[in-house]
């Protein structure tokens, strides 16, 4: 009986890792396959698909757009989460609960609805989306995640340090810069990284808000996929996966920051 249980536990673990890590490994392997189709039988190792990416300006352009949108939206989301968390924990009022629910609510809305709603909202003011609209919707989408990470930092933060700092002559901005932010560094960096990755890989929330100039990387990948399926897509995907993995490992290793608690 005990052996069966132990075997079951192993199967369970293997299944989890297979389904979580397996597809990513498969994608990485496929990006090195020299066969011209995808998926296809393994034909030999090549890096030509990675070279091919560079020859598609829409890919590199979209990568820059995605990086810019992810960078700006993550900075805004983390800054907003910091201010919200500071206010909630400092004031200790019951409105805080309502506020944290409101700020977390974008998580409950299907992302494609969020995209469509933003489009209509901007149209109401006669504004075309552009990069600003894209950044706005990505910020809204990232905020709940940033908030979760930042709030967990504030829950361990001792607010009498703020008073100590003020007592010693520091204004609020100095206190934030010298005391609050250094002590919440791990949460702020984790929040930023998490939001950046979420934004960078997200397809549906950009769907209605982009044009040829502002197409994000996932959108371009999707468009490419509709036209034809070749191993260039796995190559792009591999770059993203490897970059995310390296970032996560570096953060844990050198800053002892965990993206997931």
């Amino acid at each position: 009986m005990r052996e069966i249980l132990a075997a079951g536990r192993w199967l369970y673990l293997i299944a989890i890792y297979a389904f979580v890590v397996g597809p990513m490994l498969f994608v990485c392997a496929a990006s090195l396959n020299s066969a011209a189709n995808f998926p296809a039988n393994f034909d030999g190792i090549t890096f030509k698909w990675y070279e091919a990416i560079l020859k598609y300006p829409e890919f590199t352009r979209a990568a820059w757009v995605s990086a810019l949108v992810a960078l700006v939206s993550s900075i805004i989301a983390v800054a907003a989460a910091f201010l919200a968390g500071y206010g909630m924990f400092r004031s200790d009022r019951k409105e805080s609960v309502v506020l944290s629910t409101v700020l977390a609510s974008p998580i409950l809305v299907p992302q494609i609805v969020l995209s469509l709603a933003t489009l209509q909202f901007l149209a109401l003011f006669g504004v075309s989306s552009g990069l600003a609209g894209l950044v706005a919707v990505h910020t809204v989408h990232s905020l709940p995640f940033a908030l979760r990470l930042v709030l967990s930092g504030f829950s361990r933060y001792n607010f009498s340090l703020e008073e100590a700092s003020a007592n010693l002559g520091a204004g609020r901005l100095t206190t934030w810069w010298q005391v609050t932010m250094p002590l919440l560094k791990a949460n702020l960096i984790a929040g930023f990284t998490f939001c950046f990755i979420l934004s960078f890989v997200n397809l549906p929330i950009s769907l209605f808000l982009t044009d040829a100039r502002t197409a994000t990387l996932p959108l371009v990948m999707f468009a490419h996929l509709e036209a034809r399926i070749d191993p260039m897509l796995p190559a792009v995907a591999s770059i993203i996966v490897i970059a995310a993995a390296v970032t996560t490992i570096l953060l844990e290793r050198y800053l002892r920051i965990r993206l997931v608690d």
Binding site: N158, S160, L161, E163, A164, N167, L168, G169, A170
Partner: peptide, 28 residues
């Protein structure tokens, strides 16, 4: 409070944990 030039010793000390003793004392 930051303009009052009044020193306060807190019940639970409220030392800045990310600063050394010298940095804490020199903060003001």
């Amino acid at each position: 409070p930051q303009l009052r030039e009044i020193g306060l010793v807190f019940q639970h000390y409220a030392l800045f944990p990310h600063m050394t003793v010298a940095e804490n004392v020199g903060y003001g």
